[in-house]
């Protein structure tokens, strides 16, 4: 299967090079793969996710995602709008517009009519089981429902990859399970590449592959792995 993401010797540092967030990452991710990225706080896992979503620019190295060379391409908005669907720990929905309108937000960059936007938004809310709550404002929805709206929003432009940063981090375990089921179902049924950053080993082990990041590097299989110890428990 072809690679959807190809990363070579990717480096990123902050505070004049004092903090090396990524320190020579090499990674290939296959189209349709479900990958989870784990690691302790400050290990560089979120920076890696941001690089994959073109939210941040590397200092050096190569990164190609969905046929876009992110180190050379200037039109990163277009890339994010067309190829990536983001899900954040906090849903970050716009509070004064309905669930349906929140799902429409990414579609503004596409040239489609308001009616088409609405129809697509409703069908996405149906996928996440919230069609009946389409007209509700976010503050009338539960935490889990808001995150499901955020998932529907991430799917708005038929992305090649969904990047989820701690998608269940602010939810209780019951709601987390529901959200994870939804994400895995989407991955299986829609063949969407799914990359999740998580602290939670139970979430991580649902993936086809688990990548562990420590001090800005991907741990090799021979390294002492947090994954081995956690999963073996």
């Amino acid at each position: 299967m072809e690679n959807i993401a190809q990363i070579r010797n990717l480096k990123k540092s902050y505070e004049n090079g004092n903090i090396k967030a990524l320190n020579g990452i090499d990674l290939d991710i296959k189209r349709g793969e479900f990958v989870s990225i784990i690691g302790p706080s400050g290990s560089g896992k979120s920076t890696l996710l941001n690089m994959l979503g073109a939210l941040d620019i590397p200092d050096s190295g190569e990164i190609k995602v969905a046929d876009y060379d992110l180190t050379k391409n200037k039109n990163l908005n277009e890339f994010r709008g067309k190829k990536i669907g983001f899900i954040f720990q906090l849903h970050n929905l716009i509070p004064n517009i309905s669930a349906c309108e929140n799902v429409e937000i990414p579609m503004f960059a596409q040239k489609i009519s308001s009616k088409e936007m609405r129809n697509k938004s409703l069908s996405l809310l149906e996928i996440v089981g919230l069609k009946d709550k389409a007209e509700m404002l976010p503050n009338k929805l539960s935490g889990g429902e808001r995150q499901r709206v955020a998932i529907a929003r991430a799917l708005a432009n038929n992305p090649s990859i969904i990047l989820a940063d701690e998608p269940t981090g602010s939810l209780d375990s019951k709601t987390s399970n529901k959200i994870l089921k939804q994400l895995t179902r989407l991955h299986e049924e829609e063949n969407v590449t799914l990359i999740i950053v998580t602290h939670d080993m139970n979430v991580a082990k649902l993936a086809d592959r688990v990548i562990e990041v420590l001090d800005g590097k991907i741990l090799s299989k021979n390294d002492d792995s947090l994954l081995d110890s956690e999963i073996s428990i």
Binding site: L55, N77, E78, F79, R80, F86, F88, A109, R153
Partner: peptide
């Protein structure tokens, strides 16, 4: 945060 999300979902400057 919301402006960050708008950028993340592809909104241009």
């Amino acid at each position: 945060r919301e402006i960050g999300v708008l950028k993340a979902v592809g909104w241009s400057s």
